[in-house]
Simulated assay, not measured.
Amino acid sequence: MPPAGDAAALFQRAQALLPRIAHGAAQRERERELPYALAREVANAGLLTFRIPKAYGGPGGSMRDAIRFLIDLAAVDSNLAQALRPNFGLVEGLLFGQDNEAERQLWFQRLLAGQIVGNGGVERGGRHGEIRATIRRRGDHYVVNGTKYYSTGALYADWISSIALDEHGKETHFAVPRGRAGLELVDDFDAIGQRLTASGTTRFADLRVEADELRISYFPRDRRNPVTPLFQLYLAATEAGIARNALHDATWFAREKARPIKHSSAQRSVDDPYVQETIGQIAALVFAAEATTLRAAEAIDAAWADRLSNASLTEASIAVAQAQYFAVDAALKSSEFAFDVGGASSCDREYNLDRHWRNARTVANHNPRQWKAAVVGAWLLKGEAPPTTGLF
């Protein structure tokens, strides 16, 4: 589709597409059918471009706009929402970068044309975040060798972005077309949840990387930046969407499938006061999770408006940490409460209600929520700012 003129146009496209994504989502997870075509539809509709400025042909949306859409997407398919995370991080990094006009033009146009970026991600073994993949110069190009895991969205992507160490131990970023010889994408992600995020293994075997495929990193780990809070808030948005999806399924099950327990005062489950209470509890959790996540998005917008001052970026990180903590709790509780509206039949595999808890638990394990709470506590008690490790 042609680039959208503003965020409102993108939301209209999303509302037309989201019901199609919702249809069969539970079955896709149960059968482990990766939604390749749906990922392509999201990209073709321009829904990865919310934050691309109007000056580059994009809609010029706010962070709040982007996060609002991501909650909506996660509420119908949290796997697909998380799988597209690298694209939003790429845009934010380019916006943050300086003296990178050529790279902005290149990547913004690719995204506006419907192309998708995936991640040749974190490696297993060693210390968290340790990189052992290597990149070496060979004539007029470079060669990469190594193995990555947690390659979010790679199987859906046109471009694979990754990191390797050069001969001096310096992190070197690059992005190559997914069909390049020496690049192998393996569908072996085997977590209990989020199984369709295409987050499996990426192997580099003498992968050729051209000089113009090297990228500058706009994701510094030694100072505050707006990219890190986005990546973390993205996870909170996914959790908030999972909570809403659990509410949707619980409401449907109570209306269409459940029957009151024998000693209930009601003839229909929808009239049972405890079913009503349970739905109300889930609804309150969903309402609050979405509200806190959107408020944290506004904190990132405020940091941009404040020219990304250290103070405003710190406030944004604190806001995101709080939103993450609550969104995780809300998603886990909502997905557990969903079973309280029905009897034993709610556990039937055909309904796949357990996917909500499994998905919420898997997203939550990306970054322990205890650290989120502890960092906020340290800030309030001692004025100690969050770490700049890339997780806050």
Rank of each mutant, 00 (worst) to 15 (best):
P2K: 15
A4D: 04
A4T: 03
D6M: 14
A8W: 09
A8D: 02
A8E: 05
A8L: 06
A9L: 04
A9G: 14
L10A: 02
F11T: 15
Q12H: 12
Q12L: 11
Q12D: 11
A14K: 06
A14L: 14
Q15I: 06
Q15E: 15
A16R: 04
L17W: 01
L17S: 13
L17V: 02
L18Y: 04
L18G: 01
P19C: 09
R20Q: 02
R20S: 10
I21H: 00
A22T: 05
A22Q: 06
A22P: 13
A22M: 02
H23A: 10
G24F: 05
A25I: 03
Q27N: 06
R28W: 01
E29T: 04
E29K: 02
E29I: 01
E31Q: 15
R32A: 09
E33M: 11
E33L: 14
L34N: 03
Y36C: 15
A37G: 09
A37F: 08
L38E: 08
L38A: 10
A39R: 01
R40F: 14
R40A: 10
E41K: 07
A43G: 00
N44E: 03
N44Q: 11
N44A: 15
A45I: 09
A45F: 03
G46H: 03
L47C: 03
L48K: 02
L48P: 01
F50S: 04
I52F: 07
I52G: 00
I52M: 01
I52H: 00
P53G: 04
